[in-house]
Design a binder for these strands. Sequence first.
DNA 1: TTACCTATCCATCAAATGATTGAATCGCAG
DNA 2: CTGCGATTCAATCATTTGATGGATAGGTAA
Lengths: 210, 210
Amino acid sequence: MTTPLEKARKDPESMKARILAVARRIFGEYGFHGTTTRMIAQQVGIDISTLHYHWGGKKDLYEAVVVDINKDLGQKLIETEKVIHGLPLTERLDIAIDRMTDYLFANPDISNMILFRYFGKTRYEGNTDFSVPEFTADIARSMGLARDKKNVPPETMMKVLAVMNSIHAFIAGENFFCPMVKVDRERYIALVKETLKFVHIPAFTLNETR
Amino acid sequence: MTTPLEKARKDPESMKARILAVARRIFGEYGFHGTTTRMIAQQVGIDISTLHYHWGGKKDLYEAVVVDINKDLGQKLIETEKVIHGLPLTERLDIAIDRMTDYLFANPDISNMILFRYFGKTRYEGNTDFSVPEFTADIARSMGLARDKKNVPPETMMKVLAVMNSIHAFIAGENFFCPMVKVDRERYIALVKETLKFVHIPAFTLNETR
DNA sequence: TTACCTATCCATCAAATGATTGAATCGCAG
DNA sequence: CTGCGATTCAATCATTTGATGGATAGGTAA
């Protein structure tokens, strides 16, 4: 059995998929209440009723976006984990930061949406959540900071969160920070990687040798 | 001459001030579009028209909140700068993180609003901005990373941003992260300070001795 | 052809929302 | 007390916004 979302992911040219892709971007930029179904429909070039025909209501579409992003992020984390598996901690961090940064700069919707869920409230009784807790525990294990993904100590969770939050903040804040430090996009991306490594590699490697 | 905002800040019991205080909290929680003037009025316990009488439109109130928060944050940064002035870098970071964390946990509206401005767009042509660029440059100078607040190199700006973003993220994300690491509020605050120091102090002190 | 299903749009509705108007009400100087 | 400005509220308006119903076009099977 295939869910509507799976169907949409399979054929990126389908109307369902096109709507979903635009919804990801706009929900990420403006948040749930800042986005109107008309904005999405207009960007896709269709009527609002077509949007409702494919995805039901605004809330349903939003939930679908959350699930969609969850899948993409989870998949990328698994892929990254495979690449860095077995390497020494410093290298693991170095490679993971490079890869995740590149990926999220190419898909800023992910960082945008995650930060909106962290910090913002919505006025409706939404319940679908990002799998951030599991992802965080997974990363902790992948970084060698915990044996299994169950019972990761709070201190370790916080350290992993610090890394992920730093990345998301620089990605989602590009429009704000890029003009602020007066560099172009390419240089900004390089600066983000550099800064993330500058901040996080000493912390974790110092801890290792203590 | 006193602006309306200044008047409101002087007498915290005035209706203007009460509205402003509630607006800070709700705009911080729900963002601009997620907040309705009715929500604010209801929390204050007044009619919407009273809100309009004192503050004009929703946008005007929002802008007032931005300016208000800007003042508070700027003042706190100046105060912190005085306290840590002249101390060695490690101590400066230690004390500054403690004080800013405590302050922002007591005033989470500040972190909430700043993050909303970083990451989210609004559908109206707003222009009032936070003084984040100047603040960032000031902090860089205060930390001894730059001689004067003019011409702070991009690398330095990014490092300071990394610190500030980490703090804001943990403050604004309390409702999300606190249940996630399964600790109570008090323990969470302690964990935030600990994590911030764990991450940022090695980075900056290593850099100093290199 | 006919019947039917899918996908799309146009017109429209009902609720939410920002804003205004005019009528009370309050406080206080004279 | 009287008068008046400042403040507050109930009622209402105009627009936005999420959502729906019905019509239309296109394709497909019998």
